[in-house]
Amino acid sequence: MINKIVSTLVAAVADIRDGATIMIGGFGTAGMPSELVDALIEQGGRDLVIVSNNAGNGEIGLAALLKAKRVRKIICSFPRQSDSYVFDALYRAGEIELELVPQGNLAERIRAAGAGIGAFYTPTGYGTMLAEGKETREIDGRHYVLEYPIHADFALIKAERGDRWGNLVYRKAARNFGPIMATAAKCTVAQVNEVVELGGLDPEAIVTPGIFVHRVVAAPGARIKAVA
C-alpha cells in the first residue's frame, strides 16, 4: 500500500542534511509552509541553500530560519520587503549569499528542473545586470538569455488538501510556487490543512498529481492561524 502520510512535521524533515538545497513555497506568507520551516529549525540542519521567492517576513517561518543562521545562500527574486529586516541585516553583514533572479526566470528555472529541461533561452533580463556573463542568442530577431534549471534536494510546500498518494489541491493564491517546486525536488514534503481519503479529491481538479510528492503531513489550522 502506498502511504505517503507522515505523522509529524518533525519526522517529515528529519533526514534533511547540512548543505542541502531546499525550495520553500509561498509568495510572502501566502502558501508559506511555516510549520514545516519551524520543524526544520528544530531539526538543526545548517549551511542550507534556500530557494524561495522572498527572504522571509518578520521573524516567522523563513525569517526565523535565517535568524537562526542556518542558511548559507538564498536564491530569490524579491528579498527586500517592509518586514525583511532579518535578511537585510544578514546581507549587510555579509553573512548570507544572495542570487537574485527575476521572478519569472525563477519560476521557469524551477519548472525546467521538474520537466527535465537542460537549459532554456528566455527574453527576461536580456541587457540587464542580472544577465551579465550569461550566454545570449538572437532567435527570430529577439534577444534571449540562456538560463539553467534549479534542482533541489527537498521542496517544502503548503497545500490545502492531500491524500495518501500525495495528490494535492491548493487554495486561492497560496498555490503560487507549490506545484512547480513539487516537481523539481528529489523529495517533496507537503503540509496540508486536511488529509482526505484516497478518492476524496476530484481527479479533474487535482493540481499536483502524487507522483511529484513524497510526504504529506497534516498541519491543520495553519490557515486559520494565518487569518488571526
Binding site: 493564491a173 512547480i180 493540481v207
Partner: peptide, 29 residues
C-alpha cells in the same frame, strides 16, 4: 480579507466572477 488572496504587492484583494488561479510558471508564461 483573506491572507491567501493577495496581489503581487501582497495587498489583500478579491476575485471577480470568472476569475482563475494558477501556478507561478503559468503566470509568467
Amino acid at each position: 480579507e483573506d491572507p491567501e488572496l493577495i496581489n503581487a504587492s501582497k495587498e489583500k484583494v478579491t476575485l471577480v466572477r470568472g476569475g482563475a488561479f494558477f501556478h507561478h510558471a503559468d503566470a509568467f508564461a
